[in-house]
């Protein structure tokens, strides 16, 4: 278990491509720079896509976890 304390959690469970990434891009704006957003998703495509989105935007994926069919991502807002 990661010890990142998220400022907020985005529940993207049940959403399909491209919505987990789209919602993440909207929610990260509500996180302070340096803060962490937690994203919950069930779309298997989100594993590759959240990583790719972080690469495109320069935000940092600090942790990822899978449990009970739910993927958890912790993303640090870089700028």
């Amino acid at each position: 278990m990661a010890d990142y304390t998220p400022e907020k959690t985005l529940d993207a469970r049940g959403l399909k491509c491209p919505m987990p990434v789209v919602k993440t891009s909207q929610e990260i704006k509500n996180i302070s720079v340096g803060g962490v957003l937690e994203v919950l998703a069930t779309d298997p495509g989100s594993v590759a896509d959240i990583q790719a989105w972080c690469k495109s935007t320069g935000n940092e994926l600090v942790g990822m976890e899978k449990g009970d069919g739910v993927f958890k991502f912790w993303i640090r807002r870089v700028k």
Partner: peptide, 12 residues
Amino acid sequence: FIIATTAAASGI
């Protein structure tokens, strides 16, 4: 639209 929304969401 999927590509466009994803691009916009990626800061493009």
